[in-house]
Write a protein that binds this DNA or RNA. Sequence first.
RNA 1: GACUCAGUAGCUCAGCUGGUAGAGCACAUCCCUUUUAAGGAUGGGGUCCUGGGUUCGAAUCCCAGCUGAGUCACCA
Length: 581
Amino acid sequence: MISLSEQEIIRRNSLKRLRELGIDPYPAAEYPVNVLAEEIKNNYKADLNNYQEVCLAGRLMGQRIMGKASFAELQDSSGRIQLYVNRDELCPGEDKTFYNEVFKKLLDIGDTIGVKGFVFITQMGEISVHVRELVLLSKSLRPLPVVKEKDGVTYDAYTDMEQRYRMRYVDLIVNPHVKDTFVKRTRIINTMREMFNENGYLEVETPILQPIPGGAAARPFITHHNTLDMPLYLRIANELYLKRLIVGGFDGVYEFAKDFRNEGMDRTHNPEFTVMEIYVAYKDYKWMMEFTEQMVERVALALHGKTTVQLGDKVIDYKAPYPRVTMYEAIKTHTGYDIAGKSETELREICDKLGIETDPSMGKGKLIDEIFGEKCEAHYVQPTFIIDYPVEMSPLTKKHRDNPGLTERFELMVNGKELANAYSELNDPIDQRERFEEQLRLSEKGDDEAMFIDQDFLRALEYGMPPTSGMGIGIDRLTMFMTNNLSIQDVLFFPQMKPEPKRQETESSTEEFEAAGIPAGWAEVIKSIGYTTLGKLKEVDKHTKLHQDLCGYNKKNKLGLTNPLPDEVKSWIEAAGEDRS
RNA sequence: GACUCAGUAGCUCAGCUGGUAGAGCACAUCCCUUUUAAGGAUGGGGUCCUGGGUUCGAAUCCCAGCUGAGUCACCA
């Protein structure tokens, strides 16, 4: 048995009592809800006398019991509304049990109830539901954290991050702003989907289990397919599959995809995360920049009705268009070095001068990436496109039309972080093969993140892929930016956590104690005072102390058991030590 | 992976230089009987994260571990 807190025991007793009264605490029938709390509060007008036949359901979140009349708080999916409950209306006859016992005593905060009645305004001026009929729809057996709030000040807020993430359902019940974040997250996705569909692009699904984890540079999760007896990887990206579909003749395809990367976890990284990738044929990265800024602006408008969004202590303005800054310009602006045409050795020297650590496995691309990451990234708080990345760090990107050392790539930077990443896609199969081989060389040099070679993808390119631009955007990060959350865990319902430590170690059952000759009643007592297993019991040195503890517990808790003799206790300890297996 | 901080009642937290474990809310009983986080009174509730150590005595001091948060590193 798991030991229950006092409040849990009281609730279980209430449950039992409800059943005795003939009330099903978990009824099956549909409950005919016809309105939400928020709707009433927004639209009720006393002079219109509307909402006179309402039926709503939700969680009981507070009771102010005053005697023959009470007030309560009902919380449904839209918010809270006050209930007015009157004894003689709930119980019109002589029998006042339903009000006096069921409503006042057997209902608890957290129970799901349904009410029918009419809307009115109390003397205190609050829109409330005058309850004519009340039913229990689901009994709650655990006490909720009670959060109170007045004039925007929250009291006793439920703030323990570990518990909030582990028990998101509780978090969602008591912290309304959490729910709001997730509603906004879905609205972001819907807004994007709407825009893509308006453009005639096709939403598709591609494999999550991949034989070769391609399309990005990251350590994958690996699993095993039993029937095929082969390893499979959870995708780190879906890029190569979406491009195959462009080869297949679709003009535009997109996917909201869960990707998986077996790397560190922190405030901005979760092992599984959501990315939207879109590929459009006959477009280039310049077109994609316009498309992206319009999309982001549209998302901001859909969420906030304006383009400015608070983020920490900053205000980000998502109004399009965004500045285009080449990577070389960015580095020149923020370090003073012009790195155009510099060799690997020269770049390494520049890194040294800038105080950036390097190691021999780093190629040109990685070195430039380091300089940008260390010295430039953080400066781009307002949305900015960083464009024209060096070819070494962009193995899937078409070479720049004017400068073969660069690629046609952009990243959208917001608040000093990468939000989106896009290219004119590399569709020259021979160039692509060479780039993969270069990655392979990097990997042999020690870069464990260089890309794998996907032969089938190369074959697809050899059939010919139209010129295409593709873009990927981190949905979690976008949601963080758009909802003013600084941690990815706040925009994921169920962020990855370490397993919860086992709270209850294995206990010997009462039967096992009985087998050792200990009466069941005393076995419970012995377990209650900490000797939860026979193994622990046999370690007891002084049987006289145990004897006293047992008798003391019996007395204190008024169990009414007949106290054992000290020698009996001694024999129990000895019996516990015998091996009966 | 390194460092810093934290873990005490269902929730939020106090607990000093080591000496009987505290408050508010929640819960229970009673009183009141149209209230707005909190009407009044009384009461119950604890593996002080775990395991060692020091000590006559540890929530408190020391060591190790677990979990979480933060900073950095690694990494998109």
